[in-house]
Simulated scan of single mutants.
Amino acid sequence: MRGTDLNMLERPYYGCGKCLLGVRRLSRMKLATSSPERQREDVLVAAEAVGGHIIGWADDWEVSGAPPTR
């Protein structure tokens, strides 16, 4: 993202119709993963692409998506 301040894409809700929730997830079961900062950048780039901004984050850290083992 050249020339865009990522922090400007994180703003409070104000009912503009382009308020988005960013989602980041890390799984301890996966060896290769994207860092939280990389995921943040990817989400902000996607939000900018649709003219939106992020009003909050749903983070799921260190929770495996695999079913529990017995």
Rank of each mutant, 00 (worst) to 15 (best):
M1V: 03
M1W: 08
R2D: 13
R2A: 15
R2S: 15
R2M: 11
G3N: 13
G3A: 10
L6K: 02
L6D: 12
L6T: 09
L6F: 14
N7Y: 05
M8N: 14
L9C: 10
L9T: 06
E10I: 14
E10Q: 15
E10Y: 05
R11N: 12
R11D: 12
R11S: 06
P12L: 06
P12S: 13
P12R: 06
P12H: 03
P12C: 06
Y13I: 07
Y13M: 11
Y13G: 00
G15S: 02
G15K: 04
G15V: 00
C16I: 12
C16W: 04
G17R: 06
G17V: 06
K18C: 01
C19K: 07
C19M: 08
C19H: 09
C19I: 03
L20G: 02
L20Q: 10
L20F: 03
L21G: 11
L21H: 08
V23G: 07
V23C: 13
V23H: 14
V23A: 08
R24S: 08
R24I: 09
L26Q: 05
R28N: 13
R28Q: 11
R28H: 09
R28W: 04
M29E: 13
M29P: 00
K30E: 14
K30Y: 14
K30M: 12
L31N: 09
L31A: 11
L31E: 15
L31T: 14
A32Y: 08
A32L: 14
T33M: 11
T33Q: 10
T33Y: 10
S34H: 10
S34A: 09
S34E: 10
S34V: 09
S34P: 00
S34G: 01
S35F: 08
P36T: 07
P36R: 07
P36S: 11
P36Y: 08
E37S: 13
E37A: 15
E37P: 00
R38G: 04
Q39D: 12
Q39V: 06
R40Q: 13
R40M: 09
E41L: 12
D42L: 13
D42M: 09
V43D: 03
V43L: 09
V43N: 11
L44R: 05
L44Y: 00
L44S: 05
V45D: 10
V45Q: 12
A46L: 10
A46H: 04
A47V: 00
A47D: 01
A47P: 02
A47Y: 03
E48H: 15
E48Q: 12
E48C: 09
A49E: 12
A49S: 15
V50C: 08
V50A: 02
G51H: 00
G52L: 08
G52W: 05
G52E: 07
G52V: 08
H53Q: 11
H53R: 03
H53D: 07
I54T: 08
I55P: 01
I55H: 01
G56E: 09
W57Q: 07
A58K: 12
A58P: 00
D59C: 05
D60G: 01
W61E: 06
E62H: 08
E62T: 05
E62V: 00
E62S: 13
V63S: 04
V63Q: 08
S64N: 07
S64E: 03
G65K: 04
G65H: 03
G65L: 05
A66E: 15
P67Q: 05
P68W: 05
P68M: 11
T69Y: 14
T69A: 13
T69G: 14
T69C: 11
R70T: 13
R70P: 15
